[in-house]
Design a binder for these strands. Structure first.
Lengths: 344, 344
DNA sequence: GTCTATTTTGTAACCGTTTTCAAGTGGTGT
DNA sequence: ACACCACTTGAAAACGGTTACAAAATAGAC
């Protein structure tokens, strides 16, 4: 039943060519590189195109041209304001330059991440946006074997041989801890995200610790607790911390959501923030300024970060020279949740 | 330079076939329908596949088979907990049945939505998940012309000829308003999302109004205000409402984010919730139970809704018979933000 | 007006799969 | 033995574009 009537195909570039009375090559050119075809032809072709309601078939195009104008992104979860914002920015930027985004999630599982990468590569993505630099061993090999450009986003590691764009989490965390130290606190607890397979979380913890050490402050083991990424877990951690006979007067948190949990639980247990407890977050989500008390936190320009990641890939795909390691500035935003400790 | 050495291609199904000493047809079969090939061959092929690290080329596969095992979804924005949750569920379900998801955003703009649909169809998606039933005129034609199955999610309209899955927003909103009426309120304000191009928002407003009307309550024009989807806008609306000389004792909101804004602003202005003002939300986001006072709201099983949408498409693509209109139950969750009005 | 350099256009091979169709293989019932 | 079947396998034609290459047309220079 596959009679290739050569000129009649119901649709497709050949139908357009037939209707416009030109060759398929010209139609293709009119589509991909309009300047390469004379205005008269172009007009005829364009007219044929929308007379037929022709929609180019991307897979065929990809197959033939070996390039998809599509990037892939793998994030731990989309269900997280941080990532949602980042992805939104990235997507917006990409669509402004004619690219598309294939988004997948790994659920913080490196094996799944690898699997998704394979999936995306199979899909023909031109490049990959990854979160952090903590990946499965096979992932680097996969990327190298298939010559897929990629970038690690959300971290800044100028010493590593991989492209990245993001804030220096260690330094930012250091700044956060320094803030409460400057306020006079010496009993400082840490509630961080799970560090396993999460270089961002670990970098932040490292920054917190360095600030403490530099100032000669001790961190009793029970003052550092790690929690998964939910409000409930953070609240539970806070409850534990606040019920210690010997409790901290300030808590620095691995991210804003954790800080919200600490804040909520502290108030629920009758502690007043910042009078009885200072709390510092990290990320500066929308909620942080609305909350009462509003949250002192590290502002991270998530949107910019992800957009830059897109820019990097798009530009290097275009053959332009680009900087491999880009640092995004953070800033400390002081709000109501921190104050000097009550004199004991 | 294109010498097709017929057997040697660096990679691709032909390389696998050559290495395993079989035809490309067999490799293809081993991949798509393992039972159709003898165990011995299958073993040889599989061994060749991972010896070569072969990754099938999806675009070629799509081109040839005219089916992509990929669905497209167009949401107004990803930067919104509701959609993020829905998408996450949908994606998880799809990946569990071997499908992928192409996600795009329209920014509440029908033209952009149409454009994105064209984009997705060009990409070869097998089906489309849309939000609501308020679309560009050309979209229906586009879908029909290209025979692309789709489903409208987040609404329930059994009377329309299009597949949909979601809660009955009108009924749910009615329930929400009925709740405050039952509590004894008679001065009830509405803060809704923008109704333009948003059938979900309008249905909710309709439900609120019906409840008021049925109970003989008036809705002075200044008691109904529409706001965009941000906390700041919601707070501003609340400020306006609370500063009226003649203000409502209860406010029903178009969604939880709006309710948060009202809650925050009310407290900031010295009103106590629920003593001075009752507030009802809609959606039951995570925050609603953590907030103080916690928010009375309509619980909507977002994850289930989107998963069902995926199920519908996957099943109808598989040729199975499926119900076109599926209603998802909502429930009223009564928390701390509502109470009987203070006796005047 | 001729000749060359440049720009437009067309022809057809190719991108990496799937799938139709026919051919080969081995087992069964008679 | 023979015909008949069910099951595996392979050869080759699509799928719908892009693009290398060649041919044709146009422009510019003398």
């Amino acid at each position: 039943m596959r009679l290739t009537n050569a000129k009649s195909m119901k649709q497709g570039i050949r139908a357009v060519a037939a209707r416009a009375g030109v060759s398929t090559a010209s139609v293709s050119r009119a589509l991909n590189n309009p300047d390469a075809v004379s205005p008269s032809l172009r007009a005829r072709i364009e007219q044929a195109i929308d007379a037929l309601g022709y929609i180019p078939h991307a897979p065929a195009r990809i197959l033939s041209s070996r390039r998809s104008r599509t990037l892939g992104a793998i994030v731990p979860t989309i269900d997280n304001t941080m990532f949602a914002r980042g992805i939104a920015s990235l997507q917006q930027y990409l669509s402004s330059v004619g690219y598309m985004l294939f988004l997948t999630t790994s659920g913080y599982d490196l094996d799944v991440e690898l699997q998704q990468a394979r999936n995306l590569i199979s899909r023909g993505v031109d490049g990959l946006v990854l979160r952090g630099d903590c990946h499965h061993e096979g992932l680097r090999k996969l990327l190298a074997d298939n010559a897929v450009p990629f970038i690690n986003v959300g971290i800044y590691q100028p010493d590593r041989p991989y492209p990245c764009v993001g804030t220096n989490n260690e330094a930012a965390a250091h700044r956060a801890a320094a803030h409460v130290i400057e306020l006079g606190h010496s009993r400082i607890g840490i509630v961080s995200a799970l560090q396993r397979n999460n270089d961002r979380a670990s970098a932040r913890v490292a920054g917190f610790r360095r600030a403490l050490t530099e100032n000669g402050l001790a961190l009793p083991p029970q003052w550092h607790v790690e929690v998964p990424y939910t409000l409930d877990d953070a609240r539970e951690a806070a409850r534990y911390l606040l019920n210690l006979k010997d409790r901290p007067t300030a808590v620095v948190c691995g991210n804003d959501v954790i800080a919200y949990g600490v804040l909520l639980e502290a108030e629920r247990d009758g502690f007043s923030v910042p009078r009885d407890l200072s709390v510092v977050g990290f990320d500066d989500l929308d909620w942080s300024r609305h909350l009462r008390p509003s949250l002192t936190t590290i502002h991270v320009p998530t949107g910019e970060t992800w957009q830059r990641a897109g820019e990097y890939l798009v530009r290097s795909l275009a053959g332009e020279q680009t900087i491999m390691h880009r640092e995004i500035d953070f800033s400390l935003v002081v709000r109501e949740s921190t104050a000097s400790p009550a004199k004991s």
